[in-house]
């Protein structure tokens, strides 16, 4: 199996789907001539031409609306946001139109659009460029929220998202674009709404998604050295949330730590904890803890930035607390 980057896996997914279905097109800032701000769309303009790889002005609200309008009459747009920070300008179109057209039309209108781009922080990009908004979108009925952590999942989930009849918020990781992994060639679909056990273990469940999957895996390695066997559950999809996989794992380990990049208040982890305590309260041997980004705007200074992020030491500390090894 070919080992490729997360970036190229996304490119492969878009290219394959555009070859298969003439109604699929890509639009966004710098996706064409410039070959993509993060080079996800490299080579696509050459293959598909400017009508299907559309460079837009810097006008997120406007081009998100163009994508939704085109989807309402049968096209399948992939709307690229250079980052999800900029997509705040477009959130009216995602929340008020894309998520609601089917419902408020009594089922007459579908919006099969994918909104995609990198979310969360990279390195020293400061407060306005370092935000994780998945819990905002996951709050909205009518949207699906997908966040792949590996190149294979990036390809399989993006292909599924493009074929989905509902609007999908597809949040990538800027720090993941260069990561490599084995990716099946050709037709490879990962179902939306299914979590994945990235590491099997018996003592504690680490529930994570996107960039925090590697944080959890690193923590698990170090914990193994201390004789603690952690299971790592990658949610992959935030909405719909795969209760079954999460609950099966925690029922086995009886302890859980939820790790996410975003802020703690009403975050993804809050929802996961709600499901666990509601469904399998009696299985728990300790309260579920959460490791999140610090509850502050992201600082520029690299030491402060590092201190704000979820990292393996914080995860290890939380694991030791749920195992009553440390107070």
């Amino acid at each position: 199996m070919a080992v490729i980057t997360y970036r190229d896996a996304l490119n492969q997914a878009i290219r394959e789907e555009m070859r298969l279905d003439p109604s699929v097109f890509l639009m966004g800032e710098e996706v064409g001539v410039y070959q993509g701000a993060y080079k996800v769309s490299r080579g696509l303009l050459d293959e598909f031409g400017p009508m299907r790889v559309v460079d837009t002005p810097i006008t997120e609200l406007g081009f998100a609306g163009v994508g939704v309008g085109a989807a309402m009459v049968g096209l399948r747009p992939i709307v690229e946001f250079m980052t999800w920070n900029f997509a705040l300008l477009a959130i009216d179109q995602v929340v008020n139109t894309a998520a609601k057209m089917r419902y408020m039309s009594g089922g007459q209108i579908s919006v099969p659009a994918v909104f995609r781009g990198p979310g969360g922080s990279a390195l020293q990009l400061a407060a306005q460029h370092s935000q994780a908004f998945e819990s905002w979108y996951a709050h909205i009925p009518g949207l699906k929220v997908v966040m792949p952590a590996t190149p294979a999942d990036a390809k399989g989930l993006l292909k599924s998202a493009i074929r989905d009849e509902d609007p999908v918020v597809f949040i990538e990781g800027e720090m993941l674009y260069n990561t490599k992994g084995e990716v099946p060639e050709g037709e490879y679909l990962t179902p939306i709404g299914v979590a994945d056990v990235k590491r099997a273990g018996t003592d504690v469940t680490l529930i994570c998604h996107s960039k925090t999957v590697s944080v959890a895996l690193k923590a698990a390695e170090q914990l193994a050295a201390d004789g603690i066997d952690a299971e790592v559950v990658d949610l992959r999809t935030i909405r719909p949330l795969d209760h079954e996989t999460v609950l099966a794992s925690v029922s086995k380990t009886h302890r859980a730590v939820v790790v996410e990049e975003g802020w703690s208040f009403a975050g993804v982890g809050a929802q996961v904890v709600d499901v666990i305590q509601r469904e399998i309260f009696d299985e728990l041997d300790s309260p579920v803890l959460r490791v999140t980004g610090a509850d502050v705007p992201m600082p520029y200074n690299k030491h402060l930035e590092k201190a704000s992020k979820a990292d393996p030491p914080k995860v290890i500390a939380a694991v030791k607390r749920v195992m009553y090894l440390e107070s």
Binding site: F63, V66, G69, A70, G74, P77
Partner: peptide
């Protein structure tokens, strides 16, 4: 939403041209 549907129309016109 006041004005919110104006880009939708641009998108429908885009689909027509497409």
């Amino acid at each position: 939403i006041v004005g919110g549907h104006i880009p939708l129309t641009t998108g429908m016109a885009f689909a027509i041209k497409y």
